[in-house]
Design a protein around this nucleic acid. Structure first.
Lengths: 461, 461
DNA sequence: AAATTTGTCTATTTACATTTC
DNA sequence: GGAAATGTAAATAGACAAATT
């Protein structure tokens, strides 16, 4: 046992354990959590090595390991062998993006929503649908997976996304988030690790944290995952899966190159792991083949209609290899038994008809117009994105943090989301915010928001 | 270390570990799981004490503990201090009740569904609703918790269930199963234990198993939980919560006495734990106050509309204490972001209008008629239930197992569900099957099924 | 390229609590 | 009612592997 000569040792954290605390590891974990939440330990801080901390506290190193593990599963820490343990950048900002009503008169440029110009067309279809003779059957129980014709319609939708599938591999869920949670719950278990981009859709962060699944950021080259780095990471971090959004990555609006799609497909095939491909924005952009096209037996593809068609639909189509289908279906059943038959039918009729084209065109037109407006005001700054993407990644001048800008924008009347909300584990957050161009009610409202943001940016330069 | 003189020791299980297996506890757990699944170890079998097994294998007792724990979390074992470790009765029959279409021409008396007589009325309401001027807003994003007026309607519905609540404590979910999973995921964590009846709604079994939550059967008196036994169990098994269905318990159709409701309320208040009260069938039976009435600060009440109104609605109202609301809301958000605005609105209009009365009356009339029919055929046998309950618990003559009867019935063309599908942990399954009286399309179809079941029962006497 | 740093994981030791007899 | 049986869980020791220097 070491003597207590640690007063001069450069320890970033010096917890005090009660002399007669009954459960050392629990108390240590609790103190660590409190110190992180109270800001005593800041994101990015390197903790002392487990052995040093153990010596300092005069306890066994494995006890420290166990305390750290508790916090790691909560998403507060991330560590790697040889390098050390760090406080996650998203430890504090892990608040989920829930808002109860539009409290103030904030201009909404936070949530990623499509414009609502097409809702009338969809409603017309619904009206026709429920006046049909045997419409009341849609209030009965439907088979959990949806009817055959609904899956045929899903197949058509997936085909548009560039994926050749088969009705036997298709599942219906209550939207993309529902699909994602079902996939995580059905195919992964407590403690498993999944590789993701350094900044990622927050929905997967909260769902993974709820299920005790760890997200590991994959370092990037050219603003996207890199095949070589990914291969190493799969091995090193024992990843059980990858999550990726190749078309208009949320939040960076980046479109993944064809080469990287192929490289990722090769990597998951070689290592025999699962890739969860989120095709939420696939139909908005250019028709580059999805990763699932190159690795059909390893890809769970999620095609959500909420962002591409209408938010109120709450529907997503999932295409998966047969070996995984039963497990995902069981998880979907656990989460919600089945989707609403009316919504399933409505979505199917949209997907199988010309209405889908008309809807996509209207969305496209509106999105392009709004992006033109956005570039006109913010083009001077690094406003990453594309004319048909419903959000942009605004890189801030100087060393302004996203959180700071988000707060300032909110005070000025505009809701945007800071990079810190999206960052994963020990990755360093960009100096950026995500701005949603289609969420404001009208173009006029958007323009108001853009004027406010531009003024803020100018002040900060 | 002991010498190997165990050949004569009466050990119920003698696994063989490879000499140079690197991970003892994992291999032991794997073998145990395989032997259970392959039927080498039968449900109810007592395993050797951990120390005996450790001696036999010449390994440390804690290694056995760890192997057992892996299997316990999978729901394969259940153990208690002093008594030993047993193979769960539901270890093998843990198949979830999913059916893809009505494969054969089986008469459906398995799934618990309400009759479909009211669907036309609901559809009419929906038609009116979506022809209103601003109907297209229901295709936009709604606030995750539902609108204020929708929550007001929910409050009325809950009031009918005998619960005084407040809009600030109400949440909307995609049906009862969705609510249950959200509650389990939001308020409990991996490894937590929840007390349940010995036979329980299978949906909670699969959801709990997915989340790594253990269900502990509470031994019964007079066919229901008992306050005293419950108090002991909470302490002994360190229960974090209770799950109960006081009105028409699924599958036994038992209605809990007022005394026991009060006793359970007292127990959870005293021990400061959570009770999840499933009020799915509350509106069908007599208006006895729910447990939540006596312990409002400890009760999460689920009022599902799928079984009481129409399956296609996929909607449930949750009333919970304020301290838990945010955690459940976050879980709901993770599972499905929000409910479909159209369904939420439709459900609200039903709940707030006279239509609800009319619907409940129609259901009641049909259910009574079908139960009369059922008693006429099966009344001679122990056919537990009530005239307004949509299912019955048929106790089988002699020592016929539920599984055996289910198989025979299926061969004869009727789907029923065996007690083994519902039993929890080391509880002993009843000799019984659940029969659903409202699931068959028509009374004629029901009668056909009843004739078949009666014939089978006669043969077995 | 080898030595060192550092986190991860498994088996073990030990204390403890509950149930049974 | 006390001893024995039995499961639970924390703390520790030590082997291992990846990353750093």
């Amino acid at each position: 046992m070491p003597v207590n000569s640690f007063e001069n040792y450069p320890m970033s954290w010096k917890p005090v354990l009660g002399k007669n605390s009954r459960h050392l590891y629990k108390e240590l974990a609790k103190q660590l959590e409190e110190d992180i939440i109270n800001g005593v330990l800041l994101p990015g801080t390197k903790l002392p090595p487990q052995r040093e901390l153990a010596d300092f506290l005069d306890i066994n190193a494995s006890t420290v390991t166990k305390a750290f593990k508790v916090c790691t599963l909560k998403g507060l820490l991330s560590s790697s062998v040889g390098r050390g343990t760090y406080i996650s950048y998203d430890a504090v900002s892990n608040t989920y993006l829930l808002k109860e009503g539009n409290d103030d008169k904030l201009i909404e440029m936070g949530a990623t929503l499509p414009d609502s110009t097409v809702n009338k067309d969809i409603l017309e279809l619904l009206q026709k649908m429920i006046t049909e003779p045997d419409a009341s059957r849609w209030l009965s129980y439907n088979s959990p997976g949806g009817s055959d014709w609904q899956k045929e319609a899903a197949k058509r939708y997936l085909h548009r996304c560039g994926l050749e599938s088969d009705v036997s591999r298709i599942l219906l869920t209550n939207g993309g988030q529902n699909a994602l949670t079902a996939i995580l719950a059905g195919l992964f278990k407590y403690g498993d690790r999944i590789g993701v981009d350094t900044h990622v859709y927050p929905g997967i962060k909260t769902a993974a944290s709820m299920l005790g699944i760890n997200l590991i950021p994959i370092h990037q080259k050219n603003r996207e995952m890199d095949g070589g780095i990914l291969l190493q990471a799969i091995q090193k971090d024992k990843l059980k899966g990858i999550y990726a959004i190749p078309a208009y990555q949320n939040p960076t609006a980046h479109t993944m190159s064809l080469e990287t799609r192929k490289a990722i497909a090769d990597a998951v095939k070689k290592k025999e792991i699962i890739i969860i491909e989120d095709g939420t924005y696939q139909l908005l952009g250019k028709p580059i083949p999805p990763i699932g096209f190159f690795a059909p037996e390893n890809t769970i593809y999620i095609a959500g209609l909420s962002k591409a068609v209408a938010p109120g639909l709450r529907m997503a189509y999932v295409a998966c290899p047969e070996v995984y289908k039963n497990r995902i279906a069981a998880a979907v059943y656990n989460l919600n038994v089945s989707v609403s038959p009316i919504m399933a039918e409505l979505a199917a009729r949209i997907s199988a008809s010309d209405l889908l084209d008309s809807i996509m065109n209207k969305h496209k037109k509106e999105t392009i117009a709004r992006n033109e407006l956005t570039v006109r005001y913010l083009g001077k700054w690094g406003c990453m994105g594309d004319e048909t993407c419903i959000f942009r990644w605004l890189r801030l001048p100087g060393h302004i943090s996203g959180t700071f800008f988000e707060e300032r924008a909110k005070s000025a009347g505009v809701q945007v989301y800071a990079a810190e909300r999206f960052v994963v584990g020990n990755a360093v957050p960009d100096h950026a915010v995500r701005i949603s161009v289609c969420a404001p009610e009208s173009r006029e409202e958007l323009e108001k928001g853009l004027i406010i943001l531009k003024k803020l940016l100018k002040e900060m330069e």
